[in-house]
């Protein structure tokens, strides 16, 4: 296995949000602004990398039958760390992310990577996989947040982009805006895949 393969898989070919559709709840709920998205993304990268490292470290001593409860306890420990650190140093961000920080525990990406990757691979690859998958998640979150913040609020990272004449579409920062945005992104990816398949097919024959 090559390191590039691990990295591109997390960021693109097996992007957790757009390709595997894992961990959608925090993606849709916290993408109301780019600032929230970056905060959530960093929290997920931290938890995913640390839990991947620790699980890879102890993978040979964990009995197979009780591995899931052990993984969940490890993940919950790191989530509690993030929760407390964020509450202490970034109280505003902690307040706006609210419920979704403790809910990182049940994010399928983290348990999924622990089960599918970290428990079978060595320390270095698990670290890289954690960083790549976490960054893929963050990139997807930021992309959705960019659409929603620009259309729904007329700003990007809090910077106003349009003059005072711009009437923001409030719909986009409501829950339904999140659903519409992800629907169109996934549909365009599907369409792109289909077109590429059609183009590559004749050249193979």
């Amino acid at each position: 296995m090559k390191i590039q393969e691990v990295l591109t898989r997390g960021l693109w070919t097996e992007n957790p949000v757009f390709r595997l559709m894992l961990g959608l709840c925090p993606v849709l709920a916290t993408s109301t602004s780019v600032q929230n998205a970056v905060g959530m993304g960093i929290a997920v990268i931290f938890v995913l990398t640390c839990s991947n490292l620790l699980i890879s470290l102890i993978r040979s001593v964990v009995p197979d039958k009780i591995r899931i409860p052990i993984f969940i306890s490890i993940i919950a420990t790191f989530v509690t760390l993030v929760d407390l650190i964020m509450a202490a140093y970034f109280p505003d961000l902690h307040k706006s992310l609210g419920l979704f920080i403790p809910l990182i525990v049940v994010n399928c990406i983290i348990l999924g990577r622990a089960e599918a990757f970290a428990s079978k691979n060595n320390l270095f690859f698990s670290l890289m996989d954690g960083i790549a998958m976490g960054s893929g998640f963050t990139a997807a979150l930021c992309l959705i947040a960019t659409f929603r913040e620009i259309l729904g609020n007329g700003t990007w990272l809090g910077i106003p982009l349009f003059g005072s004449g711009f009437e923001p579409a409030l719909l986009m920062i409501l829950p339904s805006g999140a659903f519409f945005t992800i629907a169109f992104i996934i549909a365009s990816l599907n369409g792109w895949d289909r077109r590429r398949k059609r183009q590559t097919k004749p050249s193979v024959q």
Partner: peptide, 23 residues
């Protein structure tokens, strides 16, 4: 439906419309 929209994307569009109604 358009082929790219089948499956998950249209489900999300539906969810969005339902969220609007529940608003």
């Amino acid at each position: 439906l358009p082929k790219a929209m089948r499956g998950t994307p249209i489900a999300f569009i539906l969810a969005g419309l339902m969220a609007l109604a529940f608003l």
